[in-house]
């Protein structure tokens, strides 16, 4: 367990030190490649500007994730209740998933007429599919004999859904949620880049674009660090949630011998 923490931390420190050393020894100018110390100092100096941008990006990400959960789970439940709805809609869900978000983001931004809403739609489009497909898989991966048992005791579709299918789908849903958390952030950032080229956004991606135009490369790096940190934080929080919900019963959350 300690090795799992110590090894990557040591590796990270070595790489950062090497980076700093290369920048200093080769006298690379900051507008080409800033050293990690300069990036850290920029992060602190520009915090007043970067923090609100982080809040904007995170807000869109979390809203998109929440919408992805609601729509993904509702659609999955509908699919599990009706084969016809699934057959009719699932291909379109796949089309939405495989269409590159950069390609449709300009359209959405033009149609939505509201920057925040269009960013939200873009991030949601990227995030909802893993939740949908995983939850559909989970709702179907129910022990046949347990289904027979519910049948035997006269439980209708609704009770079977609440007491059997949904709990059985929970580990699958949580797996999808962890993927979607990262995707929602990517979707938000990509959409911001597209919207940002129109000059109307205020999130981290827009700060990166802006800093790029002004050749403030250390600020670009600082914003990049924040995006990565946000992605890691989302992943960790969702992993913790998953662990807390599953630790009593699911194999994936077992720590060695239970």
């Amino acid at each position: 367990m300690t090795a799992r923490i110590v090894a990557p931390v040591v590796m990270g420190i070595v790489m950062l030190a090497l980076w700093e050393a290369v920048v200093r020894v080769a006298v690379i100018p900051p507008y080409v490649l800033p050293g990690p110390l300069l990036v850290a100092r920029t992060l602190i100096d520009d915090w007043g500007m970067l923090a609100p941008a982080l809040v904007v990006t995170l807000t869109i990400t979390l809203q998109a994730l929440a919408a992805a959960v609601v729509v993904g789970v509702l659609l999955a439940v509908l699919f599990s209740l009706s084969r016809w709805i699934e057959l009719s809609l699932f291909p379109y869900a796949i089309i939405l998933q495989v269409t590159p978000i950069v390609a449709i983001a300009p359209l959405i931004i033009a149609w939505a007429n509201d920057v925040d809403l269009s960013l939200l739609i873009c991030a949601w489009l990227v995030a909802f599919f893993p939740i949908l497909s995983n939850t559909v898989l989970g709702l179907r991966s129910v022990d046949r004999n347990l289904l027979a048992l519910f049948d035997l005791y006269g439980a209708g579709r609704w009770k079977t859904l609440i007491h059997l299918r949904l709990p059985a789908a929970l580990p699958y849903f949580l797996g999808g949620l962890r993927i979607s958390g990262g995707l929602a952030l990517i979707g938000a950032v990509v959409a911001e880049f597209v919207a940002g080229t129109g000059g109307s956004a205020s999130g981290l991606a827009y700060r990166i674009l802006e800093a790029g135009y002004q050749l403030r490369i250390p600020r670009m790096f600082a914003a990049l660090v924040l995006i990565s940190a946000a992605g890691i934080a989302i992943y960790l929080v969702l992993s913790l949630l998953s662990y807390l919900l599953l630790r009593r019963w699911h194999e994936s959350a077992m720590s060695g011998e239970g």
Partner: peptide, 20 residues
């Protein structure tokens, strides 16, 4: 055994009564 892994032994046994 065909038990619900997310439910305690008590909840598993109580299932038919709850469905009723």
């Amino acid at each position: 055994p065909t038990l619900m892994p997310w439910a305690t032994a008590l909840a598993n046994v109580a299932l038919p009564l709850g469905l009723g």
